[in-house]
């Protein structure tokens, strides 16, 4: 049991005229090793939620537990927590700052207080994990392409060997191939290391293709929580809250209405293709 949120409420600007709730009675269980998609329109509470998971924000009421311990108790080692629950922010390449890529990735583990040798070892391993070529190690991170910069930024968090990796829209602004590469990389990390992944995304197609579980936030509450096919079956409600289902799910629904005997809850291209082919056999 990795992360547990127990009736968490969070109110912005409490005690002022601007006070408004950002999270309302959120209870979630994030077990080890899951690959989770977190969706919701802008302002639905996604970012506030993930900031609670590594203790950047403290709930107004309720508890956040990591491995059974309340992270907001006095004396809890938050620095250690932030190494265990790694957060990759939106446009993480804006946070690169060192003179070369290798140094940048070393920063995290060094900051954890690890000896130089160990920090370097971890940085090397992390850069290898994200598929970064040796020849670029000593280049300035500012000379890299957008997709490569993002890899270095992700490696910077991986070098702290987190148990949970949270990524806030890691593909924003990338071209289709760049998106596929980064998502492929995250998926591979999940498979090879068994790390828990929480992927915040605005692309329903991406979420449907990769994750095992989807959490939908709306107005500070958890509106849906389940497997992609269960969640996308509520496509009408999703549209009402500014989201949608993947394009192929709509195709399947329309085919069903047109009298085809297909499974209307297919959410990935592969599923849709197989369903259609089955009907035409």
């Amino acid at each position: 049991m990795a992360i547990l949120l127990n009736h968490v409420n969070y109110i912005y600007d409490e005690d002022t005229a601007m006070a408004h709730p950002a999270l309302i009675d959120v209870s979630l269980n994030i077990p080890d090793g899951q690959f989770i998609g977190l969706i919701g329109h802008t302002g639905s509470g996604k970012s506030t939620l993930i900031q609670h998971m590594n203790g950047l924000v403290k709930p107004t009421s309720g508890q956040v537990l990591f491995d059974g311990e309340d992270i907001n108790e006095k004396g809890y080692d938050k620095k250690a927590l932030r190494a265990k629950v790694g957060l990759v922010f939106q446009y993480p390449e804006h946070q690169l700052f060192e003179t070369d890529c290798f140094k940048d990735v070393c920063f995290g583990p060094k900051n954890q207080g690890l000896p130089k040798k160990e920090a370097e070892l971890r940085a090397y391993e992390a850069l290898k994990q994200v598929g970064f070529d040796d020849e670029y190690f000593y280049q300035s991170p500012f000379d890299l392409s957008g997709g490569q910069k993002r890899r270095v930024a992700i490696a910077g968090v991986l070098a702290m060997r987190p148990q949970v990796l949270i990524l806030d829209e890691p593909t924003a602004g990338l071209d289709p191939k760049g998106r596929e590469d980064i998502l492929g990389l995250i998926s591979r990390l999940h498979k090879e290391t068994g790390i828990t992944i929480i992927l915040v995304s605005h692309s329903m197609e991406d979420v449907a293709d990769y994750v095992q579980r989807i959490i939908v936030m709306n107005s500070g509450r958890v509106q849906f929580d389940g497997e992609p096919r269960q969640v996308f079956a509520h496509y009408r409600e999703l549209e009402e809250i500014g989201l949608a289902a993947p394009q192929v799910t709509y195709v399947m629904k329309e085919l069903k209405e047109a009298g085809f005997d297909v499974d209307e809850n297919a959410t990935t291209l592969e599923e849709a293709k197989n369903e259609i082919l089955r009907v035409f056999k």
Binding site: P176, K177, E205, P246, Q247, V248, V251, K273
Partner: peptide
């Protein structure tokens, strides 16, 4: 388009895959 690091809309790709499978 894929060679150029781009793609096509998901429904276009689905149709393309179906065509490749013989429909």
């Amino acid at each position: 388009l894929k060679e150029l690091r781009l793609g096509v809309p998901q429904v276009t790709l689905l149709a393309h895959e179906l065509a490749k499978s013989g429909l």
